[in-house]
Amino acid sequence: MIRQLFLILVCLALGEVVVYFTGIKIPSSIIGMLLLTAGLHFKIIKLKWIQGIADFLLDNMVFFFIPPGIAIMCYLDLISKEWIPILASVIGSTVLVLISTSFTHQVLRKTRSKKPNTDK
């Protein structure tokens, strides 16, 4: 388990290093995710080395978002002043993004798969 934790943290730490030296505006965790994908893809990291901890982290991901969610209590005053436009925009825009993205992907995917052999 220690080695597993170490490998995940190495990816995260390398992500921090990349952000520090390049000043790139991407979160270190997302760079770490891509480094882990690359490490697995190029067989630098074996899947069994991190499978256990990855399953634990991924299975409980929703739970880890609780504290940032509770942080919303700091902004309740700010939100309550204009809660109608804020809530409507949050809900309305999220619904529109869900529908437009999934429809676009679904339609493009179908048109592509109609042509034979393009996927090979």
Binding site: I8, S28, T37
Partner: peptide, 11 residues
């Protein structure tokens, strides 16, 4: 655990 769990999405 939040950042490590995002890294774990690499799997």
């Amino acid at each position: 655990f939040l950042k490590p769990s995002i890294v774990a999405l690499g799997v």
